[in-house]
Design a protein around this nucleic acid. Structure first.
Lengths: 205, 205, 205, 205
DNA sequence: AATGAATGAGCCTTCATTCAT
DNA sequence: AATGAATGAAGGCTCATTCAT
């Protein structure tokens, strides 16, 4: 068995995990700052201090790291949301409150990891429905909303979900621009807006 | 010199205006179909039948034509909005209804000009806060909202404006995806959601 | 018709033709010196003094310029061969003599256009059956040979064609390495070898 | 130290030899399938089950393993050829027959080791004069031919050798493309062609 | 003004080779 | 020795922009 040699368990494996994470973090930053199209793989890798080619040891393409980001967000935020939904059972209102709060706190925590420098001179594009964290919220929240509002005479579930999520996203984004970041106030606002809005909705889809 | 002089604009002049407009129209289509980054100047110019270089006689850059698009939207939709605001005077609720309706109709009309083919295999990005038509709504609507809700104990005007606009945008977008496009139903929904939401808002900013 | 403008007929058109030709010439040199794989588009374009991107105004890819090279060779040598075949009608021997002679002269002329510097340190690969000039010979000569030797009891036409062409190619290549380049002697040799070989062939394929 | 000492090579030694051989075999396959440029070191090493870096413990570069391949071919086929030459003494004709036959059989045997998949969409290149097995034939056969044909008034030995080898190579290659592979028929053809060709040659170089 | 070829920076990706383990 | 991640120099190609005509 002269071919056995060093099992990957020591510093090597550790570095690998670190690098993978570093790329992910850098990617989140860069995508956040520049948007998917404008961001380049070099932008991402430059922040990690790694070599250009190294990126491709971890992700096969720019697109794949983006997907990984979404997975990562979903993997981390999804369970939170799921458990909230279970906890709050049929009480939609308290679920919304808890979910929005959790989402804003999650966002604030993510945000703390990097400065958001935006290059001037380019229209700001943003990733729609596919933001890592948003992807998680979207699926789960949409389900919850659909469940809560649907019915023969309920409001249009598609419009409803889109509107609620939009409110959460925009308010969340504005929240991040302020100092200090006040997740409680933002959540309170968004919850009120959403619940009030849902109350005002017409009965016929 | 031997030509008639009483025409306010010579053929030359007219062509210039026409070309400028043609580029604008093509740009709106292309940006709509491909997004800002993916769209190329050649994509735009190709639709006009003009030559690549000609583009730069009218706009100094890809970015500038994009900005012009926003101006154009504002120039056309802005007055509509302004007059609505004047008409509905202090009645915020009826203004919102009228504005949303007008906006959705405007969008539907713009939309009718081209099919929205989106390139597969790429995360869908959308232009944020800078959509031509949106730019117009944004400024004016924000003012109206701020005016309506502000006050020492009113809700946070920034959050409020962002949330309302978000609802209008998302519902508007969803509306465009359906056949037939039903601006009335969408407007009804958005108005209810927005007014209901505003009612639910906490008093303290 | 303010959009008519300058018709491409003057210096512009001329430059285009020159550039296209320059790229073709450079490509022939580079492919000849480095082989298809090793050759880079940058190698080709560098010799023309043009910019990197300009290459793609004329050929869509490295592969396409290679194909164009073959076309070019065929277009120029093909007719020569065709007319020889017509001239020498049924006389296979005299056709072979004329064809080989023409081919060697063609090669010598092409060769005169550039020095063949071969980079050391890399196995020399050469393009097989697809060399521009060879592509022309191949199709036509193969036909002629097949026509001349085939028959129920004739030798294997495939082997025959391959062998004859191989002889012409190798002797031709060696010929180019000598100074002075003596096409007559080389042709005499190749013809003798081929005709002698064909005579020696077994009757049953 | 407590190990037996009468084994000429320890396990270590054996593995080294085995690895070196495994790389060589894999390299022959890969170069054969993909060509020198297209083949990657990883393609080679992947087939051995070894790690990428290990390759460089045995060969200093991609080029070196390629050279080793030629050496290997020569080392294995060279002796065969040498002994044939000795056996057939002055009888050039019978030597050619034996050598060609041996070469074709050698080729067929080598070929049996792998399928020749060639990547589509790329001009087919082949290694010229440097094919492992060819390198061996070349040196020896060239000597034999030179010896047989040279003389003050003999045909040009360089052209002669090149032509004979070309015939053997091309017919050999075509042979490998057929099913079943018929080395006897191919050899018969090549021998006839070569001997007939040599007979037809002019006396003056 | 209109034209469209030329420009060249920059993008994503591959891969021979090195090196810490 | 063996391992396999890291490295970084290219490579093919795109595209916003310039410029001679």
């Amino acid at each position: 068995m002269s071919q056995v040699a060093y099992l990957p368990a020591g510093k090597r494996e550790q570095t690998k995990v670190q690098n993978r994470q570093a790329i992910l973090v850098a990617a989140r930053e860069v995508f956040g700052e520049l948007g998917y199209e404008t961001a380049t793989v070099r932008d991402i890798i430059r922040r990690t201090g790694l070599a250009a080619g190294t990126f491709y040891n971890y992700y096969r393409s720019k697109e794949e790291v983006f997907a990984a980001l979404a997975d990562d967000g979903a993997r981390r935020f999804g369970p939170i949301l799921k458990s909230l939904r279970a906890q709050h059972g049929g009480d939609f209102e308290s679920f919304v409150r808890a979910a929005i709060t959790a989402y804003f706190e999650f966002q604030a925590a993510e945000h703390a990891n990097f400065l958001a420098r935006r290059p001037a001179g380019e229209p700001h594009v943003h990733i729609h429905g596919e933001t890592p964290e948003m992807a998680a919220v979207y699926a789960e929240v949409r389900d919850a909303i659909v469940e809560a509002v649907s019915g023969a005479d309920g409001p249009d579930p598609d419009y409803t979900a889109a509107a609620c999520i939009a409110v959460a996203r925009e308010v969340g984004e504005k929240m991040l621009e302020r100092r200090p970041i006040d997740t409680r106030a933002a959540a309170e606002f968004a919850v009120a807006m959403i619940l009030g809005g849902l109350n005002g909705l017409p009965r016929a889809g």
